[in-house]
């Protein structure tokens, strides 16, 4: 996993609530057995006027000019600004893979769905929760100012606006540490192998039917 410390990038505003993971990456792309290459099909049904198929090139597909990521001012965006309950629905990790592959390292929203929120941290994406009123304001500023960029500083836990204002956000200390260092969870857990083995020995006595 690539470490994430400070991200400064163009902000793309996706102004709808309850964006589900089916919308983030439609099911036909879930047939892939790989972890990469989902970026061109991020938000496929909103982004293009035709139906995308896995294994087919996206070159020359008709784009929907009204979709936010297709507007020239948001090309190259690295921070996605979103509404409540972003990432709801299916647990597919293909959703953060697609966002990352497209180039998003940070998503800012008032709230996220649990599984998606968790999946982001496993893939080097930082989901930032900011209060609804603050997100409202960021939507207004992003839409009013072409080339609007934010800086997200994970070490300081701040989103910094172009005017220099710092908006503090909360993040779980362990997740922050892993993201800052780009650490692999499994390796960390295996450091506690002794505790896992001791637990298993005890549980085998208490609930032997749990083991097969």
């Amino acid at each position: 996993m690539e470490p994430l410390r400070v991200v400064t990038a163009i902000v793309a505003p996706l102004d709808r609530a309850n964006v589900d993971t089916d919308a983030i990456i439609p099911k036909q792309f879930l047939k892939s057995i790989r972890r990469s290459g989902f970026g061109p099909n991020l938000f496929d049904e909103w982004r293009y006027r035709d139906r995308g198929e896995p294994g087919r090139s996206n070159e020359g597909r008709p784009e929907n000019p009204d979709f936010v990521l297709n507007r020239s001012r948001y090309r190259g965006a690295g921070i996605l600004l979103a509404r409540d309950n972003f990432g709801c629905g299916s647990s597919r990790e293909h959703a953060p893979w697609a966002l990352l592959d497209y180039g998003f390292r940070v998503i800012i929203a008032p709230s996220f769905a649990d599984i998606f929120f968790n999946n982001c941290f496993k893939n080097g994406i930082l989901p930032v929760r900011l209060e609804g009123g603050v997100v409202d304001r960021l939507f207004r500023e992003t839409e009013a100012t072409e080339g609007y960029r934010l800086t997200v500083d994970l070490e300081r836990q701040e989103v910094i606006t172009p005017g220099g204002e710092a908006l503090a956000f909360e993040v779980d200390p362990f997740r922050r540490h892993c993201l800052l260092e780009g650490l692999d969870d499994i390796g960390l857990t295996l450091q506690h192998l002794g505790a896992i083995e001791a637990f298993e020995a005890r549980r085998r006595q208490e609930a032997p039917w749990a083991f097969l």
């Binding site: 496993k122 499994i186 298993e200």
Partner: peptide
């Protein structure tokens, strides 16, 4: 509960998950 693919791998390798109490 449902998990993502990274957690699938984590469970396969360790039979555990790092969880925050809901």
């Amino acid at each position: 509960f449902g998990v993502g693919t990274s957690e699938v791998e984590h469970v396969l390798a360790t039979q555990t998950l790092l969880q925050k109490r809901p």
